[in-house]
């Protein structure tokens, strides 16, 4: 589903490569933690998959898309196969919960009847039934992240990218969010999550890819956060 083949990324403003000869294969339906200290290259990794950046060297494949080589006008197609969740939720403050989720479908031109059908379904999946008409500022942090996950998942993406999704949440709420991501993973969606959260990685026992100074220094099938340190 995702393949990075000897990928390097050098930013103009930095002498050291953000990623340095990284090769990673992720199968369909896998759940992968991407860990490492700040500046280790996790965000660059995710940005390359989204084609927010192009690699300086190497090849990036997502599904059947050759991400680095594809024409710019095809990038929206690539992004429609992926969902994104962030630490800061990135909800639209002037739209209700349902409108925030519907927005993701409206802007890719989905018909209204599809939207009115699938939005309540996905809100139920993330446990927000009955809160469709609330504004984001009327929700707790955990609930806001659920809305963000609903928005990322509503178009049934092949891959869900999560960048520190529990970074702003307390441990209990984080646990709930992880259960939700696990549930989404069980539907066959590949989940790739960048995180600093030891306890979550340790308790989930999923594949762990550790980056350090832009290189992969560990890739464990069922890893924990702190091994070898």
């Amino acid at each position: 589903m995702i393949r990075l083949d000897s990928v390097s990324k050098v930013y103009k403003t930095s002498a050291r490569p953000a990623l340095d000869g990284v090769s990673v294969d992720v199968d369909k339906g896998e759940f992968v933690f991407l860990i490492g200290p700040s500046g280790s290259g996790k965000s660059t990794f995710l940005r390359l998959l989204l084609r927010e950046e192009v690699p300086s060297k190497g090849r990036v494949m997502v599904s059947n898309f050759d991400v680095a080589k594809m024409a710019r006008r095809r990038v929206p197609r690539l992004r429609q196969t992926m969902g994104c969740v962030f630490q800061d939720f990135r909800l639209l403050a002037n739209k209700t919960v349902a409108e925030n989720v519907a927005f993701a479908l409206e802007v890719i031109g989905k018909p209204k009847r599809t939207i009115t059908k699938v939005v309540p379904e996905v809100l139920e999946l993330v446990g927000l039934e009955g809160k469709a008409d609330r504004m984001p500022n009327e929700l707790s942090g955990g609930e806001q992240q659920r809305v963000a996950i609903a928005r990322a998942f509503v178009n049934r993406p092949l891959v869900l990218l999560a960048d520190e999704p529990t970074g702003n949440l307390d441990p209990d709420t984080s646990q709930d969010i992880m259960l939700l991501l696990e549930r989404i993973n069980r539907t066959g969606t590949t989940v790739l999550m960048a995180t600093h959260d030891h306890s979550i990685v340790d308790s989930m026992r999923r594949r762990v890819v550790e980056l350090h100074l832009g290189k992969v220094i560990r890739d464990d099938k069922r890893g924990v956060y702190g091994v070898g340190r």
Binding site: P76, L78, R79, V107, I108, R151
Partner: peptide, 11 residues
Amino acid sequence: IMRLVGATRWY
């Protein structure tokens, strides 16, 4: 958000 969910440039 529009860019991330795959809206086209026109949209």
